[in-house]
Amino acid sequence: MTATDTDAYASPLLGLAGAVAADPPDSGVAAHYGDPMREQRRLAVDRMDFVDLSHRGVVRVAGPDRLSWLHALTTQDVEHLAPGESASALLLSPHGHVEHALAMVDDGEAVWMHVEPGTAPQVVAFLESMRFLMRVEVSDLSAEYAIRWEPTAEGVTAEGVTAEGTAEGTTDHLTRQGADSLGGREIFVPRSKLAETARRVVEAAGDTGSAAGVREAAGAGDTAAAAGPGRPAGLWAYEALRIAAHLPRAGFETDHRTIPNEVGWLGTAVHLHKGCYRGQETVARVHTLGRPPRRLVFLHLDGSVDRLPGHGAPVTHEDRAVGFVTSSARHFEMGPVTLALIRRNVPVDADLLADGVAAAQEVVVPPDAGLHVRPKLRA
């Protein structure tokens, strides 16, 4: 993988039999490996297996001034981020619109972050433009490192930890485990390990890696999967869990005019009691006065309709367009579900249509979200 040519990227795990490639902007990794519902259940219930997120960008910021510098540039309080501690932050425009979301962890010498596919060069370019005389070094390491997500056992604290005891059985991988990690952890893995991971999955399957063999190896009792590196689960399974958790994703739940208040990022990616940063005036004003222009909602779709609304599909109320679909998935328990961004003044009990599909609304960001009313993000 190069830092910019994400369309040409193909993970070694796409070579496994049964793998079906995901659509842009997630090109290069698998949407599923032949059984998306089972893959999702094993992640959510059995707390097993892993998800290939190697198409995401990786950025590293080193130097003695890194924490104070990032503290001043981003929405998060990271000035005293401890080694191994994770954080989420945003880069905003001068008008408070979301430009980039950063998933960060500090290793004691540098802050590592992963970002949306294809955006690492933009993040690096912006950070470089803000260096001035600060003692920092910014690197795009997307060609050297990849991201893998795996669920953690119940009771594991949501703090940054080393990768000891991961599926690779090593201790040299940096791990991020934050409040937005879907009850799991993201591991920064040397890209050279991806082919080895694919080989181990094939060996665990026990029959040249056919889809049937992989399923059999992960069958009753999950003996082979537990003893080996685990099975890969596709991005459909991961996205379904993200949508069900009401977690926004940059480029999906955001457009060119989204502010953090609209999608539930206050408290997770925005610290409301830190010093000035670019775009803070807008965030603080809307938080103080309440009533963001739009609000994120979670929609339960009519399961009798055999299609999912695509990103950008219209959401309507009483024959009027009131917003758009941001992400859709089939959840293994709830059925078809969607996140959508709609006008603030749409009644919270209103029945909606998402691309013509009947949808029952569940509030994520209340219409009067602000200083005294917080988003209802799921634990």
Rank of each mutant, 00 (worst) to 15 (best):
L91N: 11
G279H: 02
D368K: 04
A125C: 07
E281P: 11
S181I: 02
A217W: 13
T152A: 01
L353T: 03
R242A: 09
R295M: 01
R242I: 04
D46S: 12
A101R: 12
S54A: 14
G370L: 14
V156C: 04
F50M: 13
L133N: 11
M104T: 06
E128M: 08
K376R: 15
H246S: 04
L90M: 06
L102E: 07
V61C: 05
R291G: 09
E154D: 15
H246C: 10
P367C: 00
T316K: 06
D172F: 04
A30P: 09
E203Q: 11
Y145K: 08
G310I: 02
M130D: 02
R320K: 14
V138Q: 11
Q40E: 10
A22Q: 04
R242W: 06
A250F: 00
P229E: 06
A240Q: 03
D351I: 02
P248N: 07
S54E: 01
Y145I: 11
D7C: 00
D306I: 00
R66Y: 03
A17Q: 07
G251T: 10
V364C: 04
A217T: 15
M113K: 02
V283N: 01
F50P: 00
A211S: 15
A179E: 15
H271F: 13
W69H: 13
D140A: 10
L174A: 01
V136F: 03
E99Y: 01
A224Q: 13
V123R: 07
L70M: 13
T166A: 07
S192I: 05
A72Y: 08
I243N: 00
M37W: 10
L339I: 06
D65S: 12
